[in-house]
Amino acid sequence: MKNALITGSTKGMGRAIAIAFANEGLNVAICSRNEKELLDFKNELLGINAGIKVFAQVADGSNKVQLIDFAAAAQQQLGFIDVVVNNLGTFIPTSILDDADDTFTRQLNTNLMPTYELYRFFGKTMMGARTGHFFNICSVAALNPVVQAGSYSVTKYALLGLTKVMRLEMQEHGVKVTAVIPGSTLTDSWKDAVVDKNTMVLPEDIASAIINIYHMSAGANVDEIIIKPAPGQL
């Protein structure tokens, strides 16, 4: 049985992705800062598929020490991690000149650092096994910067750049790397806005795309996939 590790896994896209992998029969490793949410979601996943293992650990993914502790414990409990979904992210809608003193650092530690560290943690093991898949959840802000979210756009540009480097480093070793680039997606980032879900990408759409890419033949890699709302960006 294969194993998937998902960050930012109890809400939004991460939640939908974890459910999709559970439905596919993969064991899943999930983390959250909120213990109750984490344990409730673990039980939900086991209810979806009682035949899988769910490893859940309280951890703040933006904290390097806690992140690596989670990764190491997941590997110890489940074995070889076949899929890593770097989904953890935060969106702070301010222009760079209006950023608080910690805005850029917070977004770097959430939107970029976890992917870099989990790549360093799992990359050589995957390389040695000549198998594995990294899915990095980027953003259309990495293609077209959003002036109202300047430092967010910068960190997502950096994440897309990191993804391209990862792909080049891994491609000769049989390890796949995919940049998933969503547009306006109905997650908690929109919780205070009045929106029509029929004009947005849903988290389940992202999960479905990832599962379809995961099932492709060993010789096929989707470098990047862009998923935008049919009526255009909000």
Rank of each mutant, 00 (worst) to 15 (best):
A220L: 10
V180F: 09
A71P: 10
F121S: 09
D192S: 14
M200W: 14
R33A: 10
D69K: 13
M127G: 11
L38K: 03
T185A: 07
T7C: 02
L45V: 10
N144M: 11
F21Q: 03
R130K: 12
A18Q: 11
I210V: 08
D98L: 09
D223N: 14
Q57K: 15
P145C: 08
R130E: 09
N27W: 12
N3T: 13
T110Q: 00
L26N: 03
I181F: 02
V222P: 07
H215P: 01
F21D: 02
E169N: 13
V154P: 00
G25Y: 05
D82A: 11
G128Q: 07
L78W: 01
L46S: 01
T110P: 00
Y119C: 04
P231A: 09
G25Q: 07
L118C: 09
A193R: 04
P229Q: 02
K191C: 07
Q66R: 13
G232P: 11
S62I: 10
N27H: 12
G150S: 12
I6N: 11
Q171I: 10
S189F: 15
I227F: 07
K36I: 14
T125M: 10
Y214E: 13
Q148A: 13
A100V: 00
K42V: 12
M126W: 08
A158L: 06
E172K: 14
D102E: 09
I92V: 13
V222K: 15
K156S: 10
D98A: 09
G161F: 00
D205S: 14
P114G: 08
V165T: 06
H215W: 01
F135E: 05
Q57P: 00
V65E: 13
A158Y: 04
E24F: 13
L38H: 05
S217L: 14
T7P: 08
G219T: 08
D99W: 10
T103L: 11
V194C: 14
I227W: 08
A20F: 01
L168Q: 15
V180W: 05
K176E: 10
L112Y: 13
L162M: 13
V84T: 07
I81R: 06
G25R: 13
I81N: 03
G123H: 05
D192A: 06
D196V: 05
N109I: 00
V165D: 07
P182D: 04
A50M: 02
Q107P: 01
E172F: 05
P114A: 13
G161D: 08
F121W: 07
E24I: 05
V201P: 00
L112D: 01
T110M: 01
T155R: 00
